[in-house]
Simulated assay, not measured.
Amino acid sequence: MISLVRKSSKHLVIETYDVNAIGDYFIDTLKAFKSSFYTVSSRTNEDYTIIYITDDISSAAILSKDTQVYMLPLDSDEILCRITNDKKHHLVKSLRVAPRQIIMRYFGNLDKIIYSLLKDYGGKIGNIKESALNFELTDSIVAFTDKPLSRNLSLDDLNERCLLIPMPFKELYRNLKLKLLGYLNEGLENKNWFEFDIRIYDIYNAYHLHYRRLRHVIDNLELGLILGENWSRDHAVILMTVGVYSIKFFTLFEPKYIKKILMGLEISSDNKRLCDYDLYYGKKKISWIELAQNKKESRVDVAARCRKELIDMLPPSSVEYINNIEKEITGSKQI
């Protein structure tokens, strides 16, 4: 599945009588993570609240290199309840909710998407880093990224341009969700989706494990949609048929990009061949040779390079998940 819009983490500014005391409370009692704004933003998603501590909330520069920033996997209202119930409310002088972003994933021509949004909602173009750090903003911020929305995103993962739209955050978010496909098509400039047939071959019959690996990567990288699956038989050599599991796959990514992902899954971390993932675009089979950088590269060489690129794209938890499945595959057969 491809996610096209989500919210950023929530932002709460707390003016306090004792910066050190409330900081110790967040770390010792609520188990908050403390760091700089840029580091924290890359470790959070919409389930988190980022808290800024200051002794002067009226200052024009609440956020500076010395600002204490905390991250908690809690809603802001739950955090305030904990502060009250833990009898720490005496440390809080005043509060402010800082701007939160709506993050849209885009493909293709971002200029057309921005133009369409400005036409529908008005507003103006701003700089995302300046806007994210401007706690005086009253407009809603729409940020853009070409990265999957399922992962944590830092400010560097966002396009430098954002939109400042004079509409309440929740109302704008509801409206955008209703029109997402329209804005997606604006960026694609009427480009069609790719329809692929992915065929899994494995003489050891560990199809369910290969499917789990593939499905996990498709979901984690938000590559596209699986809209059909079926078993069939294929003639591998003359007078011999083998089972094949076929997947009907729709995506916005080019054939070579998807083939590169599949090649990275054909081998294990120690370069042992696990299975074949053949990719068909219409009647054309996309060959691994199209990915070779020179005539000397073998199929294993290409797969090893694709494997490294794939691993670099995945978070550590996904890499561990895939490696565990591959241990199960190699443990069930002699390779």
Rank of each mutant, 00 (worst) to 15 (best):
N45V: 06
T49A: 00
L265T: 07
K147H: 12
A61I: 04
Q334P: 06
H90G: 15
A143Q: 02
G331E: 11
L209Y: 08
S42T: 11
I165W: 09
E290V: 02
R151D: 06
F196E: 05
K248R: 13
D86K: 02
Y257N: 06
A143L: 10
I218K: 00
D139S: 11
K112H: 03
Q334A: 10
L209C: 01
G228S: 07
S131K: 13
Y52N: 03
N220F: 01
S8V: 03
I261T: 02
L110A: 03
L221A: 05
M240D: 08
K31H: 10
M71G: 06
N134W: 02
L163Y: 02
L118H: 00
K124F: 05
S317Q: 11
G122T: 08
M1N: 06
E254L: 04
L265S: 08
L279K: 06
R233T: 14
K88P: 11
S268K: 03
V300E: 15
D77F: 14
D202K: 11
I57G: 10
S64E: 08
L117V: 01
R151G: 12
L137C: 10
Y207L: 10
S116L: 04
Y245D: 10
T29A: 06
L184P: 02
N109V: 00
F196S: 00
I102A: 09
E46S: 15
D120F: 01
L74I: 08
L95T: 03
I125F: 04
E320A: 13
S58P: 00
A132P: 02
K112I: 00
S140Q: 05
